[in-house]
């Protein structure tokens, strides 16, 4: 086990998140009810995704300046773990919105209005751009060429992330909260007792995401050890 302290911190923070997240006193909001506790879980997934994509783009830039294939492996694996958390965020959001936004008396009608929500479409586009990153990688057999082209594409993909998940959904009307600022990070949105769980939760989930990504990186470093300088 390399550098164990942050892995212990990760586990401790996640214990705190799950236990505290299910027990903390919540404000009484009729639309959300108890589902407001999903703030610690669903929103945490997006925090992980953003962190991992940021790590990925930093490694891509490092690859372009140093031309060492090691950084390409870092960038690729951070992005693929980021995609995993993006998909989990989408799936958890699908369940949550079914019990808050959707009208139980007219499920198919309300589903069609919910599915048009700009935040959902924007996130879907962002994830599809990152799927294209992996398809692009698979389609180039030459290792150096693949690393170079995918590093440049990764920077563009990261640049597209902000318009698709942050700018455009805030211009259009949406059911999703967070129209006026960063959802859940804004001090005015979140109850102060919930914030005590929320920030440790985000750190804990992020550490978990980085942990999984480093495992993948170590496997790929062993797999590609003949190509690394």
């Amino acid at each position: 086990m390399k550098k164990i302290w942050w892995k212990i911190l990760c586990v401790v923070l996640l214990f705190y998140t799950i236990i505290g997240g299910l027990l903390v006193k919540i404000p009484n909001l009729p639309v959300l009810g108890e589902t407001i506790r999903n703030l610690f879980f669903h929103v945490g997934m997006w925090a992980v995704m953003m962190t991992l994509f940021t790590c990925s783009v930093v490694q891509s830039i490092r690859y372009l300046s140093k031309m060492n294939i090691r950084y390409d492996i870092y960038a690729h694996n951070y992005a693929s773990t980021g995609i995993l958390f993006g998909l989990i965020g989408y799936a958890t959001g699908a369940l949550w919105m079914n019990y808050t936004w959707a009208d139980p008396n007219a499920p198919s009608y309300s589903f069609s209005t919910v599915a048009r929500d700009p935040k959902l479409i924007g996130t879907a586009i962002a994830l599809l751009i990152y799927f294209a990153y992996f398809i692009l990688r698979q389609s180039i057999p030459d290792i150096d060429k693949r690393a170079k082209i995918s590093a440049v594409y990764n920077i563009f993909a990261f640049a597209m992330l902000f318009p698709t998940i942050m700018i455009i959904p805030r211009i259009l009307p949406s059911l999703h909260p967070g129209q006026e600022g960063n959802p859940a990070l804004n001090f005015k949105d979140v109850d102060s007792t919930m914030r005590l769980i929320e920030y440790p939760a985000f750190v804990g989930w992020t550490l978990l995401g980085v942990w999984i990504a480093t495992l993948k990186i170590r496997i790929n470093l062993i797999k590609e050890k003949h190509f690394i300088k």
Partner: peptide
Amino acid sequence: GRIYVVIGVILII
């Protein structure tokens, strides 16, 4: 109060 939605979300993760 729809607490099982939260449990469902944790299970998905």
